[in-house]
């Protein structure tokens, strides 16, 4: 085989947020994910790329989708996977995050996938260990793999990201998904509109390069993609939130609103869906919805992330 000395696009050992990535790095990652997508369609759903490597899922917060997705992604790369959950760990005995991470590292772990309620937790672990660290959601800060799988899904369905009108609707202020989506979308040249009540979508978000709008109805006809954020139950009782009925009335996506959109509008949701709140059941299950496609794509994107970070680590 003739080897081609190409300048590597991806040299990062960690994926902590999309803010730090260039548009080229994001595109390279999405291209790589496309190659990984087909692995899941074969009869042998496994490649030997991370054979002999250990991935630990460190989840300090509830998650089914993301955790399962990372576990499967690691397994499809032939890595060994260790599940760590806060409830069953020494964290309950008062061990610090840094100590927990360093102890797990000492067992010979290569990649740590970290979900934590505090912003910056993944970064802290990246700084205190020699492992590759992938942020699987930290507080209200970032959820980069969700942002990437949303970009991947948009690109797959629409053929491009650049120039598309994308609305993100709901509790933007408290959403790490929204932050990662905005960062990725803006970098790839989409026009992003954030929609929701002023308490949940403050004007300060314009600094991220997005437009802020409080009236959903007016923007519906121009949108190519509408991503509905999950309304978190603990937020509903707080004073930043209107009454649930009012929210559904003003910002819920239903059949009537869908009829005012472009016929090929893509309706996205990071899950889990509150049916009848941010998304009516018939829209969630309808032809415009990409909810399950997002979940499948998440696997390919996470395989690409684990693979590329480990590759960069090998080279370092």
């Amino acid at each position: 085989m003739t080897s081609e000395p190409e300048r590597p696009v991806w040299t990062r050992r960690h994926l902590l947020s999309l803010d730090e990535l260039t548009a080229d790095e994001i595109r390279f990652l999405l291209d790589t994910a496309e190659s990984f997508k087909q692995v899941s369609t074969r009869s042998v759903k496994k490649v030997p790329a991370l054979r002999g490597h250990v991935v630990v899922n460190m989840f300090f917060e509830e998650s089914t989708r993301t955790r399962t997705s990372f576990t499967l992604a690691a397994q499809r790369l032939s890595a060994d996977v260790v599940e760590f959950s806060e409830k069953l760990s020494s964290v309950k005995k008062g061990e610090s995050l840094r100590d927990t991470a360093r102890n797990i590292e000492a067992m010979g772990v290569d990649i740590m996938v970290v979900r934590h309620p505090a912003a910056g937790a993944a970064q802290q672990i990246a700084e205190s260990t020699a492992c590759c660290v992938v942020n699987a959601g930290d507080g209200q800060h970032a959820h980069p793999t969700q942002g990437l799988l949303d970009l991947f899904t948009i690109r797959e369905v629409k053929g491009r990201v650049e120039g598309l009108n994308v609305a993100i609707v709901g509790d933007v202020a408290h959403s790490r998904v929204a932050r990662s989506d905005v960062a990725g979308l803006v970098k790839l040249g989409a026009r992003v509109t954030l929609v929701g009540p002023p308490t949940l979508v403050p004007r300060t978000f314009e600094a991220l390069g997005a437009r802020v709008v409080h009236d959903l109805e007016t923007v519906l006809p121009e949108m190519d993609v509408i991503s509905m954020l999950r309304i978190q139950s603990e937020r509903i009782s707080s004073n930043v939130f209107p009454s649930l009925r009012e929210y559904v009335f003003l910002y819920g996506m239903n059949r009537e609103r869908l009829a005012r959109c472009k016929p090929d509008v893509l309706i996205m949701h990071p899950g889990p869906v509150n049916r009848g709140i941010e998304l009516a059941a018939d829209v969630a299950d309808g032809p415009n919805s990409s909810i399950l496609r997002q979940v499948s794509n998440g696997l390919a994107v996470r395989m690409a992330v684990l693979f590329l970070c480990q590759q960069a680590s090998n080279a370092a």
Partner: peptide
């Protein structure tokens, strides 16, 4: 794979 580093571009089969 463990020695060639990030120069490997994964293409589709």
């Amino acid at each position: 794979l463990t020695t060639i580093g990030p120069s490997a571009t994964v293409r589709k089969t």
